[in-house]
């Protein structure tokens, strides 16, 4: 099983590779990728350096071009595909059908991976992309249970990559418009959910208030930790109750499921977090490298080490982790 780690910049890329990533994924410095954050990502010069470094250390590099261009921006996505091809990345991670069509025609030798943003949750949908564009691998959304992932692996000719660790989208990726509903920009159109420029913080008599596009997402009392106001992770009112109506601020951690993931033939596990620090990337890569190696060596006797859990919990959003939908008993 391949370990795929996030590279938001050159130091993160190096930290991932040094700590045992088999592959890293990166984006260009614009809205063509789903982590379009200020100060993040690669220009061509840095990308070239990163690719050289990864190559020299035996790691692959994937380029994420995984947002959905509209006619006005189409040329930018085309250029992104062309630059990635010229840079010599090992694969493109794409979400949009039009971009995939362009890449498959213009660069037929360049391997294509299906981004999680393409919302592919069943093997018939996977077959659509495989037959039309010859995709080699697909990253499946974090809403699937382990049994459902296994079912897709069994029925698909395409290698499957799953999310192992990091921030958790409770919605099907690529099909969530909550951010643009409140603030006009979404992961699909802009490459960012709940973009920082739409966030405001204000101390009020009722507490510290966070807003997105003017909409009150949460209100924190004295001593309460205030997290990033991602639109789905706020506290709202339903009936008489005020609570995390959509999702608590927790992180995904599937280390416990590693033996099952490997046994079911999942090809790669992905670490989320191109927006996180090089220290985070290095730490998470190192632990997952150790875990995958330990599990491969002795699948039967695999136990999650306490120090792994402790270290991962420290870098988790909300300092809590969950198995997400993977452990869902229903269906």
């Amino acid at each position: 099983m391949e370990l795929v780690c996030p590279a938001g910049n050159l130091p993160s890329l190096k930290a991932a590779v040094e700590n045992g990533a088999d592959a890293v994924y990166m984006g260009l410095r614009d809205d063509t990728n789903a982590r379009h954050f200020p100060g993040l990502n690669f220009d061509e010069k840095r990308a070239r350096q990163g690719i050289e470094y990864a190559r020299a250390h035996g790691a692959h590099v994937f380029m994420a071009i995984n947002t959905f261009p509209q006619p006005a921006g189409w040329k930018r996505w085309q250029r992104a595909v062309d630059s990635a091809a010229h840079l010599g990345v090992d694969a493109l991670i794409l979400a949009d059908i039009g971009v995939m069509d362009y890449a498959a025609r213009r660069w037929p030798e360049l391997p294509l991976h299906l981004s999680v943003q393409a919302s592919c949750t069943n093997y018939e949908s996977l077959r659509f992309y495989h037959e039309l564009f010859g995709i080699r691998r697909a990253v499946v959304p974090r809403v699937l249970s382990l049994a459902q992932v296994q079912h897709i692996v069994e029925h698909s000719q395409v290698a499957i990559e799953v999310f192992g660790f990091g921030s958790l989208c409770v919605m099907v990726e690529g099909r969530c418009l909550l951010s643009s509903y409140a603030a006009g920009k979404s992961p699909n159109t802009y490459g960012a959910c709940s973009p920082a420029e739409a966030v405001t913080w204000e101390e009020t008599p009722a507490g510290l208030e966070s807003r997105l596009g003017g909409l009150l997402t949460d209100r924190y009392g004295p001593g309460e930790d205030a997290g990033y106001p991602t639109i789905c992770k706020g506290r709202y009112r339903v009936g008489e109750s005020t609570y995390y109506a959509i999702e608590e601020p927790t992180s995904l951690n599937t280390l416990d499921l590693l033996p099952e993931l490997i046994a079911s033939g999942v090809a790669a596990v992905k670490i989320e977090g191109r927006q996180r620090s090089p220290a985070y990337v290095g730490q998470v890569a190192r632990i997952w490298r150790q875990a995958i190696d330990a599990c491969r060596a002795r699948p039967q006797g695999f136990r999650v080490r306490e120090d792994w859990s402790r270290e991962l919990a420290k870098v988790s959003e909300g300092a809590q982790t969950t198995l997400g939908a993977y452990h869902r008993p229903w269906q």
Partner: peptide, 8 residues
């Protein structure tokens, strides 16, 4: 997600 003419 039909966001552009290529997809259409």
């Amino acid at each position: 997600n039909i966001y552009n003419l290529g997809t259409l």
